[in-house]
Lab assay of single mutants.
Amino acid sequence: NQASVVANQLIPINTALTLVMMRSEVVTPVGIPADDIPRLVSMQVNRAVPLGTTLMPDMVKGYP
């Protein structure tokens, strides 16, 4: 099973992602692959992302 990117904390709308905000976890449904975490750094979320939420491609501005 492939690990996905999961919010490690509440991420407010328009926040630029940092490594501490994300963790990898095997979840269903599958979200953004954990391998993409380095690419996500400094990209902004377009909505508030609660703790434990799987990051989906449509939540991150400019992804992929």
Rank of each mutant, 00 (worst) to 15 (best):
Q9L: 08
L19I: 15
P29H: 04
D36E: 13
V20C: 05
A7P: 02
Q2W: 14
P12K: 08
I11E: 02
N14M: 09
V20A: 11
A16T: 08
V5A: 09
M21A: 04
T54S: 04
P50E: 15
A48C: 07
D58G: 14
G62F: 06
N14R: 10
M56G: 09
S24A: 15
M21D: 05
L40P: 00
I37H: 02
V5P: 01
L51W: 14
Q44F: 12
M21W: 02
Q9F: 06
I11C: 03
M56Y: 12
T28K: 15
Y63M: 06
Q44S: 11
I13P: 10
M59T: 05
P50Q: 13
V6C: 03
I11F: 02
N8P: 01
V49I: 12
V6Y: 02
V41T: 06
P64H: 15
G52A: 06
V45N: 01
T15N: 04
K61V: 15
G52I: 02
A48D: 14
P29E: 06
P50N: 10
A16Q: 09
N1M: 14
P29Q: 05
D58V: 09
V26T: 13
M43D: 03
L51Y: 15
A3H: 11
P12F: 06
G31F: 02
P57G: 08
L55Q: 00
P57L: 05
D58Q: 09
M43Y: 13
Y63F: 09
N46K: 10
V45I: 06
N8M: 09
Q9S: 09
R23N: 08
T15Q: 09
A7K: 01
N14E: 08
V45T: 14
V5N: 00
G52S: 06
T54V: 07
V60D: 01
L17F: 02
L10M: 13
L10V: 11
N1K: 14
M22A: 00
V41G: 02
S4I: 01
D35L: 13
A7L: 03
L51S: 12
L19S: 09
T28Y: 12
M21P: 02
Q2T: 13
Q44C: 04
M43G: 03
P33R: 15
M43E: 05
M22W: 02
V6S: 03
M56Q: 10
V41Q: 07
A34S: 09
V6N: 00
L51V: 10
M21Y: 06
V27D: 02
